[in-house]
């Protein structure tokens, strides 16, 4: 694989990651959001594999495989399970309308591009497109955590943010040591698991999963 094709491929994939993040903002169906998250996981696995092919570092294939299993399969399936178990409504409530949310997302991407300017110049390996789209994905994820009212959608935002950071890390460093990656995955699983269990308990005890209303619990 020559360098040009490689960087184009990475660019295209990173744009797809960004576009999927935007799509998560653009629709309000919880199930579709989770499906999009699954797509995000597949795309990230693909990026890792492509980088592994180009650099020839074998541990990246492991990263790709783990990403595929955890982000592409395990976490989305777990979320679906939680969703069915507590009978969540399909509507992912947000405190912003979709057009406004998309405007916010576009604005954040613009910020990501401007923030990415000095960073991109520092690294000869990486193109600014990849940098900006990974940062943009992370920003969008964070903003989603802010505007979402339900705990599960907040978790979606968190995972999206993590996806952005993962993309940033893997393209910037061409693969961190496997140990670090494993640590991050472990964190991720714990976070998703804790949220899921919390959700199940919340759904069971209060009959709702609205985070705003948790503040009623204050003494």
């Amino acid at each position: 694989m020559d360098t040009h094709t490689f960087s184009r491929l990475v660019e295209l994939t990173s744009y797809s990651v960004l576009l999927v993040a935007v799509a998560v903002v653009a629709q309000r169906n919880l199930a579709t959001s989770i499906r999009l998250l699954r797509l995000e996981g597949f795309l990230l696995a693909m990026v890792s594999a492509v980088i592994g092919l180009y650099t020839g570092e074998s541990h990246l294939f492991w990263v790709a495989a783990i990403t595929f299993v955890i982000k592409g399969l395990a976490i989305p399936s777990f979320f679906f399970h939680v969703m069915h178990r507590i009978g969540l409504p399909h509507d992912a409530e947000r405190s912003l309308t979709v057009p406004l949310g998309l405007m916010l997302a576009s604005g954040l991407t613009l910020v990501a591009y401007h923030v990415g300017r000095p960073l991109a110049l520092a690294s000869p390996w990486i193109t600014r497109d990849v940098l900006a789209s990974s940062l943009g994905t992370a920003f969008i994820g964070l903003s989603l955590m802010i505007v979402c009212r339900k705990a599960l959608t907040q978790m979606l935002g968190f995972l999206l943010m993590e996806d952005g950071i993962f993309l940033f890390g893997i393209t910037e460093t061409y693969g961190m040591p496997l140990l670090v990656e494993l640590g991050i995955f472990f964190d991720l699983i714990v976070a998703a698991g804790v949220t899921g269990i919390l959700l199940l308990r919340m759904g069971g005890d209060f009959g709702h999963v609205d985070v705003d209303r948790l503040s009623d619990l204050r003494g």
């Binding site: 744009y15 960004l18 576009l19 935007v22 799509a23 903002v25 653009a26 629709q27 979709v98 057009p99 998309l102 405007m103 997302a105 576009s106 991407t109 613009l110 591009y113 401007h114 300017r117 600014r128 497109d129 900006a132």
Partner: peptide, 18 residues
Amino acid sequence: LALSGAAAVLAVIRLVTV
């Protein structure tokens, strides 16, 4: 339609900055 607009705006942003 807003998603469509946002995708186009992302393309514009990319073309503008890079």
